[in-house]
Every structure is written in structure tokens, then in C-alpha cells.
Design a protein around this nucleic acid. Structure first.
Lengths: 197, 197
DNA sequence: CTCCGACCAGACAGACCTGTCTGTGATGAA
DNA sequence: TTCATCACAGACAGGTCTGTCTGGTCGGAG
């Protein structure tokens, strides 16, 4: 069994399938990628896919779930590097900037999934859970930063975050995230003039 | 022939097809909607569709083209109501707010198409043309409003515009556009303190 | 009347997609 | 050794999709 202890040279079928789904679904869209392409890319038999996941729909769900968890972990890890709420807020934009400047960037996976799919309830729930996480983080951090109206400021930051993600992808504009970050910094000062950034 | 003179009771096959495509593609996604569903919804024979458009791909292109033209016209019409650049900028957000509060709102059709489709070059070009139009409009208006750095301010406004559209759709948040509009007004004042809004 | 263009109805081919099923190997534990 | 487990390979059924084709209807122009 090659489960957790990392040194195994070959991943389990389930892990390879999730990795393949992660690449293909994100890059080409959930609907356009068929089972056959996934199993070929993963080097896995079709029967193994159905043993592990039962259906394509469940594979999609697992893909989004994994994506959501990974993003939460990445954000939490990043936040832990700073002890100042204003820096923490800006670090979320920095993290977005790093993602967006990677070669295969296609915008937020959940936005893509929502637009692309038949949009079953499962996709929507994974999507809104992930969006709520970001909004909550921003709200907590804004409150900690002493903002006058943390809920409102957090909503504004989410607007910038989403907008930057869209623009970075569709306009191929590497500066979009920097623009958003700069504006976010400006807004933080406006909401709490005692801050120094 | 029932072409332009409006009073004809029955639209041409081409017009009915475009109308049906407009509803179904926008609502359910380009990939998930099949030819059969479109012709049924339009009340048109399959042969007529292929006579008019030649392929589904060309129908998609025409759908996006029509969407793009309609949006341009709507925005230009709205801008003509005001003679003050600051009001004009805000009126674009008002227009977005009206669209977003309509029952079947699903966000920007071009964002949807980009995420959803196999993303042929045609879709991308229709999408970026539409995005360039908005950015140019904002840039011109910011310049006319006497903003210190009109290009930068316009990019920031586009971030807010996209973010509001996303949030209004995915979060079902009717206030998202209002939040964006308020922030836009704030930024206008920051960029040109002599403005009164 | 006749002809033509626009449209309708629906069968059909060929490709592709999901999901099932049969059968085969490799590996490690009892 | 024996046996359970995991994974592989690939055929197959049933459905859906795009696109083509045949044939029929109707209204208006020559």
C-alpha cells in the first residue's frame, strides 16, 4: 500500500486520478474533459476510476473539494507568516499574484466550475463554501486591523480579489493583482488612518 | 419576408434561433446546450439552423457577437443620459445593478463563455473585444473627469465592475453592485478632490 | 399556373461519452 | 502456497451529440 509515507515512487490510482482531474478539469473545463482522457492522463484503468469514485460526478466533487482544501491550507500558511492584520490582508493578494503569474493560470477554479457545468447543487455548495471562507478571513482580519466597518471593507476586498483574478486571466494582465493590492492598501488606510503600510 | 419592419407577427428562423440561443446558452452554458434543444426552443427545423449558420460554432459566434453589440448599445444609451463624466461612470455601475437584479442573472456572458467552452479563438476574441470596450470607456471618462492617472483609475474601476458582477451572481448578493458603486464614487473623489458627487 | 425560396419534419450516420463487465497480473499476508 | 486486494486492459451497451439528407408545405412573383 502506498498511502501516506511519501517515499513511494508510484502514487495510488486514486491519487493519480485526482491529480489528472485537477490538471485537465481546470485547464479544459469540466464538461469538455471525458473519462477516457482522464484515465489515459492518469495511467489508470477505467474500472479503477469507477472503483474509487463511482461516477464522474463524484470525481468532480472530489476534485473541487481537494481544490478548496488546498487553497484554504495555502492561505492559512501564508497568513501565519505575518502577525499584523494589515500585512496579512495584503499577503492574500500576494498569494493570488503568485498563482496568477504561473503559466497555466485560468482564474478561480470555482468560478470556472460554476460557469462551465450543469451546475449541480454539489458544485454550487463547494463554490460558495470556498467563497465564504475568503470573505470570513477578510472580515476577521479587517476587524483585527481596527477598520471602522469591517464587514463592508471585507466585501470591498472580495470585489477586488475576484476582479483581479478575472482580469489576470482574461486580459492576461500581470499587473491586475498589483493594481488590486495597491487599492486594497489604500482602502485599509482610509478605514483606519492610524495604520502604516 | 419578415425582416426589419417590426409589425410582423412571426420572426424569421434566424432571429428565433438567435433569441433561443441567447436564452439557453446564457442560462445553461454553451457546452451543455445541444442543437436539438435550441431548435425545439426556437420552433425551427434543424435544416434551417444549418442553412442559416452552417455550424454550432458559428451560431455561438453570432450569439456572442449579438450580445456584445447589445451591451455596447445599452451602455452608450445610458451614458448619453448624463453630461458629467463622474455621473456617467457611476451610471455604468447602475446599469450593471439593473442587469444583476433581474431574475435570470448569471454574470457576464463572456466570462461564462470563456470558462465554459473549449475556448476557441473566436470566443476569446469576442470576449476581449467586449472587455476592451469597457476599459476604454472607463479610461475616457476618467480622463474627462480630470483624474490624476486615468489609465490606472480605469483599471481599478474594471476590477470593481468584474468583482461586482461575479459576487452578484455567485453570492446572490444584491448589494454587491451597490458596494462597488460606492467604492467607485469614493475613488473618483480621491483622484480628483474637486469633484462633488 | 408554375416556379422558387424559405421553412418544416424527422430519419440517419458517425463520433463520442458514461458506465458495466470480464478477465488478467502483481503483491503481500496468513 | 494460497488467497485477498489492488490495479490493469479493453470490449461492450446505451445514450447523446453534431451534421447531412430526403421530402413535404406554403406563399408570393413572374
Amino acid at each position: 500500500m502506498n498511502t501516506k509515507t511519501g517515499s513511494t515512487p508510484r502514487l495510488s490510482a486514486r491519487e493519480r486520478l485526482l491529480a489528472a482531474a485537477g490538471e485537465l478539469f481546470y485547464e479544459n473545463g469540466i464538461n469538455t474533459v471525458g473519462i477516457d482522457r482522464i484515465i489515459e492522463h492518469a495511467g489508470v484503468a477505467k474500472a479503477s476510476l469507477y472503483d474509487c469514485f463511482g461516477s464522474k460526478d463524484e470525481l468532480i466533487r472530489s476534485y473541487l473539494e481537494e481544490r478548496s482544501q488546498a487553497r484554504k491550507a495555502r492561505i492559512n500558511e501564508r497568513l501565519a507568516r505575518y502577525n499584523n492584520p494589515a500585512d496579512q490582508i495584503l499577503s492574500i493578494f500576494d498569494l493570488l499574484g503568485e498563482s496568477a503569474s504561473q503559466p497555466g493560470y485560468r482564474g478561480c477554479a470555482f468560478v470556472r466550475a460554476s460557469a462551465d457545468a450543469s451546475s449541480s447543487a454539489r458544485i454550487k455548495s463547494a463554490c460558495s463554501e470556498s467563497r465564504a471562507f475568503i470573505l470570513d478571513k477578510f472580515t476577521d482580519l479587517c476587524r483585527a486591523a481596527g477598520a471602522a466597518d469591517p464587514e463592508q471593507l471585507a466585501k470591498q476586498l472580495v470585489l477586488l480579489y475576484d476582479g483581479a483574478s478575472i482580469s489576470a486571466h482574461l486580459d492576461d494582465n500581470r499587473n491586475a493583482v498589483a493594481t488590486a493590492r495597491a487599492l486594497a492598501a489604500q482602502m485599509l488606510v482610509l478605514h483606519n488612518p492610524t495604520l502604516k503600510i
